[in-house]
Amino acid sequence: MAEGIDVYKRRYGQNPKSLWRDLKGTVEPFYVTLRNMFKKPVTYQYPEEKRTPYPRYRARIVLTRDPEGGERCVACYLCSAACPVDCISMQSSEDENGRRYAAWFRINFSRCIYCGLCAEACPTLAIQMTPFYEFSGRDPLKMVYEKEDLLIADGGKDNEYNFYKHAGIGVANPRGGNEDEYGPVDVRSNLP
């Protein structure tokens, strides 16, 4: 005990107020918790009471389309690289117009943790999170969604964006046909 007091003195000096503060600090929380016990709980009683999530709520993932109705996803693998639980897999391919797209695209929702890193990584705004959260099942295979299940007929957030119109490699527009580009250089001419 004597040493306890010594320690106390070393720590707080001779100020008796400190002891008072400590005692108060020990007892006061009991009052706080007791007071809270008589307040109304803030819990939503979920299945009976439903809450409308905010538009940026992160739940079921979709693949969106550009304004022309083309698939936005270019299968760049950035979402699968960003995914911390490795629930996204795909195979990229090239169509006859030179457009890169996902030959297949799969999200295993039974693994997904809805962290939103895929949507954040997506450079073409293809992969987006929706607020649809009532999403569960008993068969893991039914939670494995393929591209057909994921694609929606809408642009989602930032509806107007079309990656290929900005890419600068002449897939949607002819080469050099974007508004921020000069036409292709004629390398056989030295004329300015």
Partner: peptide, 10 residues
């Protein structure tokens, strides 16, 4: 239950 109420849940 009591802990729940202390933490303002059910």
């Amino acid at each position: 239950r009591v802990l729940g109420r202390i933490q303002r849940r059910y």
